[in-house]
Design a binder for these strands. Structure first.
Lengths: 343, 343
DNA sequence: CTAAAAATATTACGCGCGTAAACTTTTTAT
DNA sequence: ATAAAAAGTTTACGCGCGTAATATTTTTAG
């Protein structure tokens, strides 16, 4: 490695003996230049280890081949998981993923789209915050580049959407709980951050009514994304006040259930499906941590893989004009019951 | 809002009646232009909602005022937490945070620094992967911009470092455990992803020897970042084989402990400090989830706030030439014992 | 070996914006 | 009101790279 400073493609052109336009071609697609020049360039790269400025590259390219990924809250292992999944698939498809998290903040969500616009992405895979999203501001961006929604739909944007079948998933869980014991009550946040919550509540009520059972919903206080804390605090309260009308509790999501399990343990309530147990607890999402709760959490898993791969496929269809526009605008994937020890 | 397309500052100059250089000044610092022009610009902004391209801005600026933040694994709530903390402080200091995660991958770590270089950051706050980091490659970047390490030091880079006092923190925990019951054994990964693990093991051994007690370390198999899984699997094995020589287990970090708690629960071992308990379990980190384990996990917390604020302060010192170069290169912050129910 | 085809070199301009210099207008001080 | 100071305008060039057009070289076909 020579210590000469290569600060741009011009410099690298000098030392490598290749013209800058040809270098530009090479960096855009190494296979587009003659093998002998490719070899010369790569030999020079070994010596001087130059690499083009990523943002300058995108500034005036026709096709950038990078794909933005926006998730609502990367600190949530659930999204961390699916984001990694999608990133890998994007790479495999020959594109470059740019992952951004909205940190649960609608302003950050808009900011993320603005930042992505500035690098002229080929397309965007977008999991919106949902009810707190600034729909008016979002609409400004939907016309600028191909965009596919996943995880959470925003109907008003009228975009392709790939997601989890909350109706079916909740229904299968209710069915299981009723078959194996006392019918469940439903526990959710009154003002849920995640819009899927509403569908789950509605589905719970429907399923119960279909089974000629009385639905009972606990909509607890608390806002934000500290779901465990809310499950814990409100769980303590419900248990202490003996307000639970059933020994089986279905939670709107796993994180609430995790908090609740902690409260139940603290109050000395034994959770599980055994005979000595006072309470059955079930979640929704198959959160990465749900395997490690005490007891392990019975829940419904999303079809991660299908959602991730279909989202990308759908976006590529748009990008590469495979005119599958006639396909359904929305596609849902069924959840699977994950039977563990808590219910 | 007019529907005219404003695609760049030139366009916006036309419609706003302000020259482009003045606009440039305004966007760099709104207070740097006359109040009357500021008003005119902002009135035009209301109408046309233009905003400068972030990356083009940084391309030829002397002082970009953006600060890169690189963390090893954002999916870990621990880093998610501290990253959010740092982001806010950076904003408050008048800079712009650019957060990137290495996803536990040394190549991604280098890639992140390369991407940051391309936007010419004023400085970088960097939490390295540690033992798996590509030190040779990292060194290339340390000369290019001011850089401060946090969470995990890489001695070879010889950079300012702000971190957790693993020695003190482990010592205080060992002390507590010995005072309150059976002396602890130590549980860690044989090839830990996190380099702090080594210091913790050494400190455990030292503390035990100082107390004239026999240290006992379990270095279990398993690699990667799925700590809970490793704690769970290896925990099951240790318990089943009755290999634990003490009823008190100190874990290298909370995530391992979380997995172990799950194993203990499954095996019917009651964990806690009460009389009917078979096992005491203690962790390290005060992981966001450690409050919600069953029982709640006794652990040692990092001084998040101090580490975050000092890291930024240190970086700003470098940036603004406050010549505090004579300060100590490394600064450690003591942990605090968090006494919960597990030990 | 020669002509056609393919690849590279040269030149020039564009992307969106920062910034410096020279000049003009507006504001502030006297 | 007038001069000095401050702010704005014009003009020009730079950042690092994409890309088109033309000229030149290299490769392949015959």
């Amino acid at each position: 490695m020579t210590d000469q400073k290569i600060k741009n493609m011009e410099d690298f052109a000098s030392v490598s003996g290749i013209s800058r336009p040809t270098l530009s071609k090479y960096f855009n697609d190494p296979a587009s230049v003659r093998v002998s020049t490719k070899a010369k360039i790569e030999a020079a790269l070994e010596q001087y280890d130059y690499r083009p400025n990523f943002y300058a590259m995108n500034q005036n390219r026709r096709l950038t081949r990078n794909i933005g990924i926006v998730v609502p809250y990367l600190a949530d292992p659930f999204f961390a998981e699916i984001a990694r999944n999608i990133e890998n698939l994007v790479i495999r498809a020959g594109y470059r993923p740019i992952l951004l998290s909205s940190h649960g903040d609608p302003n950050q969500e808009i900011e993320n789209l603005a930042l992505l616009r500035d690098i002229k992405p080929s397309g965007i895979l977008f999991a919106p915050l949902g009810r707190s999203s600034n729909v008016v501001a979002l609409r400004e961006y939907t016309a600028e580049f191909p965009m596919v929604l996943f995880d959470c739909n925003v109907e008003a944007l009228n975009l392709p959407f790939l997601g989890h079948n909350n109706i079916q998933a909740t229904d299968i869980m209710v069915d299981y709980l009723v078959r194996t014991g006392e019918p469940p009550v439903f526990f959710e946040m009154k003002y849920p951050s995640n819009p899927n919550a509403n569908k789950r509540r509605l589905s719970y009520i429907q399923s119960m009514e279909r089974l000629r059972l009385e639905p009972k919903v606990y909509s607890v206080e608390g806002t934000g994304w500290n779901f465990e804390e809310i499950g814990y605090e409100q769980g303590l309260k419900l248990i202490a006040q003996r307000k639970l009308v059933s020994g089986t509790v279905l939670f709107s999501n796993d994180r609430l259930a995790i908090g609740f399990l902690s409260a139940a343990y603290e109050m000395g309530l034994r959770v599980g499906r055994g005979s000595g147990c006072a309470l059955r607890v079930a979640g929704h999402d198959n959160h990465p941590y749900s395997r490690f709760t005490c007891p392990a959490l019975t829940t419904v898993s999303h079809d991660y893989d299908s959602i991730a791969s279909s989202s990308i496929e759908r976006l590529l269809d748009l990008l590469e004009n495979r005119e599958s526009h006639n396909g359904p605008r929305e596609r849902l994937f069924d959840g699977k019951l994950v039977m563990r020890e808590s219910a």
